[in-house]
Design a binder for these strands. Structure first.
Lengths: 254, 254
DNA sequence: CGCGAGCTTGAGGCGATTCAACTGTCGTGG
DNA sequence: CCACGACAGTTGAATCGCCTCAAGCTCGCG
């Protein structure tokens, strides 16, 4: 059940395709032929150092890759040099060309931690040309697309009409849900390698203010962020404050 | 070349399919078979009063519709009753189901002006089942999808890291470009039926502040907004201020 | 040991919000 | 015909959230 953590070291091609398969099956059940296809691809995994730009999409189409381990972001750079994150990428997310439909894919992706990815070009290609042969994979890839856009919409809500407190809580809850789906949450806690600076770039806040709000949330025992680990301490209050209902967690609170 | 204006009255089925065809051809050249398909659909146009919610997507999938005339928006309602616009819809934009790929389509659409739409369910269906038969239409629909996501990304940039001044200018330029593509711009001016209130809901600003900034922009002779008409008075300065480069207008300035 | 990256804290200022009142312009009905 | 309300825009005053500048802190690491 538990998935190896995000550590990008410790590898082997076999393990990588296993991880890919695990992710896809988590999205949608796959038939034997589909499992066969995934495992037979043998696309070599790649490692990227933190800070590397991976997907500049200068000329041709960079083949789509799926993140196996580590975190990344999609920054948009403004004239004055400031950056606005369009989104955060976690294990199981995709980057690169997806058939001309996603301008999001044209934006650069930068590794925030050491990153491990695996090429899924042939897989995407196969599914695109004959989707009827791979119904489960088709739905799995569609689910990834959908999740990506859902994240964009949530991001707009945060930036558009929430206070710094709300934005931070809202994002932490989103991360909770996304990481929970891929087995990174244990005891209401999950790893969070983002610096407060990067958090600010994602949320449209200054480093200083992020710090103040985060430490206040800690004092109020709502969330605890320490040593790269986020611990949700009061789920109901947090969800209420952030104006975000977790669909997977209806009525869990006493 | 010029397109009839956004007035939703003045109708007839024939004219509506003509408009639909015009929009699609503006996106991508179509072959005779494709033109035939579009004109043969005969989907009845609908009128919606301003303020109407059109696409609540409660139960089944509301068939996709294309906007022929008028403006609409996609609001997301928060707990405290405030609204955040996820986007603005202009003539030529689409709403409703698009094959499970777009969570954006699940959000309600509300008419901001009297609105005229035409159903494109069969068309989308035909293109989806055998895209190879309608390459031009396929590309046209893809272009609509792409434009939608591009707008989302621009929206994030505005909300995330721009001042009120910049946000307003940035949005006005986006509208300029989108309306220009469908023939609504004449002499650097275009119709803009949004109230300052709605503008604020889109940009994450208060009505009062929108007003102040808009009137300052007017005093500085950058843009003029009056009687529902926006006139761009100083393009280069505006683009620089908004940190938005218009790809269709490179080097036009003296 | 000293350095750098990330985190923390204080002081001051600006941008945007809220509350409130006032204007102008419609369409409606007495 | 004018009174009326509804609606959009305008303006002022006070407040607050967040930003910037500026130091100082605490680690881990060469």
């Amino acid at each position: 059940m538990a998935l190896p953590n995000g550590d990008p070291r410790g590898s082997g091609r076999a393990l990588s395709t296993e991880l890919l398969l695990h992710r896809l099956r988590g999205l949608n059940p796959l038939g034997p032929r589909e499992i066969e296809l995934v495992l037979s691809l043998g696309e070599q995994p790649k490692h990227h150092a933190a800070g590397t730009t991976i997907c500049p999409h200068e000329d041709g189409s960079p083949h789509p890759r799926l993140i196996i381990g580590g975190w990344a972001c999609r920054p948009r750079v403004m004239l004055d040099g400031r950056r606005q994150m369009l989104g955060l990428l976690l294990p199981g997310d995709m980057m690169g060309d997806r058939g001309e439909r996603r301008p999001l894919a044209l934006n650069p992706v930068i590794a925030l931690t050491p990153l491990r990815t695996i090429g899924v070009g042939p897989l995407v290609q196969a599914v695109r040309t004959c989707p009827d042969d791979y119904p489960g994979l088709t739905r799995a890839l569609t689910a990834i697309d959908r999740a990506e856009e859902t994240a964009l919409l949530d991001h707009i809500v945060r930036l558009g009409c929430q206070s710094a407190r709300q934005r931070i809580c809202h994002l932490l809850l989103e991360l909770y849900q996304r990481l929970s789906a891929i087995g990174f949450v244990h005891n209401d806690a999950y790893p969070m390698p983002l610096t407060q600076d990067t958090l600010g770039e994602a949320l449209g806040l200054s480093l200083v203010h992020v710090n103040r709000v985060v430490s206040q949330l800690r004092r109020e025992r709502l969330v605890l962020i320490r040593n790269g680990v986020v611990t949700i301490e009061d789920f109901p209050r947090l969800a209420l404050l952030a104006d975000r209902v977790d669909p997977t967690r209806e009525g869990v609170a006493a």
